[in-house]
Simulated scan of single mutants.
Amino acid sequence: MLRNETLRNIALTPDLHDYLLTAGRMTPDPLLVEMAERTRAVVPDQAHMVVAPEEGALLTFLVRLLGARRIVEVGTFTGTSSLCLARGLPPGGSLITCDVSDEWTATAREFWALGGVDDRIELRLGPAVETLRALPAEPHLDLAFIDADKPGYISYWEELVPRMKPGALLLVDNTLFSGEVIADFPGEKAAAIRKFNEHARRDERVQLVMLPVADGLTMARRLPAGESPF
């Protein structure tokens, strides 16, 4: 394994993380802060599922960088990542987001309206695989974000990759899973993530990078015909 022993990723202490957010202009605005507080109040045991501030800022940045107009998200929860994605959309852009919980997404709907992006977001409740299979089969998506049940990741990936335009970006969250992906005996979710990571690594339809952002973020660019993944 090739590795620069002197330049490993720096560990983020709380103070350094605060500096990162401030210096990088990624400090959550009041609406995002309120969303996080509401999530902790409504579903305290699952509040850790809200995307990290730096990841939310990155989502908005990438949507704008790509000029993405058609986005699909798998896993809505209380709507923070949807809000961040929708904020980056140009006029006429749209986001379809999939979830199974009417309770959790009720919070999302409220904050999408407060953030002025509810007209750009279509929530589809039901099994995400069925929602994805109902989408047009041809490549038409500019960006997709997977952040849902971990055993479903491979199925979501396989439905989305053929629907991504050449050059489109597919993002997958939690791909380091708190480091448990390299454990000798990973739990069920970590084992599913490890299986997904290997599946994605072998997929020559995409150019792939994995970044140590938040809990691990895999970024996959759909390759145009004839372009090498390496």
Rank of each mutant, 00 (worst) to 15 (best):
V33H: 05
P224A: 05
K195M: 00
A23D: 14
P14E: 06
D15S: 07
R69I: 00
L176D: 07
L170I: 09
G67Q: 04
R3C: 13
P28S: 02
P212I: 01
P127Q: 05
T60H: 07
L65I: 02
F196M: 02
E227H: 03
L20H: 12
E122C: 03
E55R: 05
L217T: 00
V117F: 10
L176S: 13
E110A: 09
R221L: 07
V172Q: 07
F196P: 09
M35Q: 09
A113S: 13
L7H: 15
C84D: 08
R70C: 02
I71N: 01
M210Y: 02
T6P: 01
N197K: 12
P224R: 02
L7E: 11
L170R: 10
A137I: 04
S101C: 12
A214G: 04
A168N: 12
R87D: 04
F230S: 05
N9A: 08
P30N: 07
V117S: 00
V51H: 05
R133E: 04
A52C: 13
E55L: 08
G152N: 14
E159S: 09
H48C: 13
V213P: 00
L2R: 07
R25E: 05
T218A: 08
G187I: 13
I10N: 11
W112Y: 14
D142S: 11
R109N: 03
N4E: 06
P30G: 03
L211I: 05
T105N: 14
R202Y: 06
K189I: 12
V181C: 11
L211K: 06
L141Q: 12
D118F: 10
C98E: 01
E73W: 13
S155L: 07
R40N: 04
V42Y: 01
S178W: 08
L83D: 04
L132R: 04
A11I: 11
K165P: 13
Y153H: 06
R87E: 01
D203F: 06
E122D: 08
Y19F: 13
E138N: 03
D203Q: 08
L20I: 09
D18P: 03
G67R: 09
E54M: 13
G152K: 12
G152C: 12
L12N: 15
I182V: 14
A57T: 10
R124L: 00
P91N: 06
T105D: 11
K165T: 13
A68D: 05
Q46M: 10
F145H: 02
G93F: 08
D118V: 08
T131C: 13
G93P: 06
L135S: 01
L7K: 03
L12R: 10
V161I: 00
G187Y: 15
V172W: 11
V42W: 03
R124N: 03
T13N: 04
R194S: 10
G24K: 02
P53N: 10
P30W: 04
N197V: 05
G93N: 07
V43P: 04
P212T: 12
V33E: 02
A134T: 07
A106V: 01
I71L: 03
Y19M: 14
I146Q: 11
